[in-house]
Design a protein around this nucleic acid. Sequence first.
DNA 1: AATTATATGTCAACCGGTTGACATATAAAA
DNA 2: TTTTATATGTCAACCGGTTGACATATAATT
Lengths: 323, 323
Amino acid sequence: MKPKIEDVAKVAGVSPTTVSRVLNNRGYIGEKTRKKVHKAMEQLNYFPNEVARSLFIKKTFLIGLIFPTTSNPFYGQLIFHLENIAASQGYKVLLCNSQGREDKEKNYLKMLQRNQVDGIIAGAHNKGIEEYEIPNLPVVGVDRYLSNKIPVVSSDNYLGGKQATQLLIDKGCKNIIHINGPISLETPANLRRKAYEDVMRANQLTPLTYEIDDHFTIIKQLFEENPQVEGIFASDDLIASRVMREAKDRNINIPTDLKVVGYDGTETTRLLLPELSTVQQPIKEIAEKAIELLVKQMDDKDDDIQLETILPGKLIEGETTGD
Amino acid sequence: MKPKIEDVAKVAGVSPTTVSRVLNNRGYIGEKTRKKVHKAMEQLNYFPNEVARSLFIKKTFLIGLIFPTTSNPFYGQLIFHLENIAASQGYKVLLCNSQGREDKEKNYLKMLQRNQVDGIIAGAHNKGIEEYEIPNLPVVGVDRYLSNKIPVVSSDNYLGGKQATQLLIDKGCKNIIHINGPISLETPANLRRKAYEDVMRANQLTPLTYEIDDHFTIIKQLFEENPQVEGIFASDDLIASRVMREAKDRNINIPTDLKVVGYDGTETTRLLLPELSTVQQPIKEIAEKAIELLVKQMDDKDDDIQLETILPGKLIEGETTGD
DNA sequence: AATTATATGTCAACCGGTTGACATATAAAA
DNA sequence: TTTTATATGTCAACCGGTTGACATATAATT
């Protein structure tokens, strides 16, 4: 019922080989013939079957994206750019939301291999680190170290962490606390914490880091245990937002009594919380670089592929750190 | 180089037909043979080629999702749920961000047909309305009327608009303005405006609606042209956020001088702007229903498919409408 | 006139997996 | 002993499209 090449050939009055020649613009083709074939395709509403074609050419033009969720502003924006750039280069994107679960991540990896994807870009939780080392399959990590053979792209987390901490110090804060995710995750974002600690020590100040859990209850605890806190550097904007909310609930004035800096600076955050000082990640550039590295590996040019790409973010000073 | 069934057969010491029988659990299979085959698959790191299989069984288990962007909180969350539910039922998701562009939307439709997807869920801008009426291809619309033959799922926009407007009236507002997107888009969200207008007239109040553009400049204009405005019902939370920001810049106190209600109530918005009163859409339920309707069509049971599904939202009263 | 280029057709193998029909051998049940 | 069930193998066609080799016919160039 669905038209195939044979059907197009019959309607156009040519051979199936000629239709294939027209489809692929290969060999000699007369203009009259070409027009007849295109007209027949339109008339039949014929679409070449990419499944059959992929089987033969051994290429699917599929890229698998494995990230925790599209529901988070950072990942949502990153995935948007990745899909957009991939599509503009003729690739199709298979979306895999791993929800930070190792079992789902592994299942997605298997699914992507069964579906013969041309490459994978991943920025999800990972424990069993070897799963990503698939022979002859290009992989790029975003904000995650997947293997010492897999290129990774991230923002300059150290510099960002440094800038955020330095801003709070420059604004007069001495009692500064950092909130980050679990350090057990192998992510370049851990450098934000490292930078915070280094800058604090360089200024003869005592670093103190809280590890966030899923329910932000640690924030209440932070305020209870440190009523004298003057500055908070949160390792992402959602955490920063909860900090601000908790502070408001406790009648702590921002920025007079407490200064806050976040991280990510996504479009959504900048729209919903424009007053937040933050380190804005170069999300579009990260996406561009990730696709570039992936395509480079696909083209079998992985001799000179740089393993780590660090792209600079931008410190945005908002009202939450004072004027 | 990549192992195929023949290779697995050789290592296991059986025939390729037996390997296929094991893969598909079809026909008689001895337990010892089954174990030998599985061991060989593991040893060779063999993954069945779903491309070859799809060609034969004429099913790809692919679902195409066409939405404007993953970068928007509502779409990001909706796409997250859609992918999650699809994956749990063995489907794979092809992500298509149309960015509200008709040309991209059409290209994605073609791409999805070429790639033999089993179905499409779309919630994007649409003009050329016939493109979605593809013979024998299940399609479901979310928040978009795609055709009078294609089922659509949405929240109860009318009730939500009614609740939002009524809340502002109940809080004492008489001068209430509504901000919505372009009415030329065929979307059930237009019912939010209809409800606003109906409720205003039912209360002997004069409705006034502003159509948002891409740059929110209309919001400045709204305040300039209506300095006496007391309540604003924005048809999504991002617009509401900008309204609040503009009010703050003009030293208009929320909620004392101006009450604001938004729409969507996504996780991200609730986290970044918890004080906002909003009508929360049942995003997860919308996703569940959309997948259910799509799978129903795939199973060729579209005799009794309901064409319109309206799911109730929930009015959340926050601080932006007073106590 | 001879040679080369253009245009289209025929044929068959291939891409990897599925599957039905039928064959053969062994084991279990009647 | 006969019949039925279990287990595995062989074979080939199919899914839709690609493509090279070669054939035939016509047109253009030398």
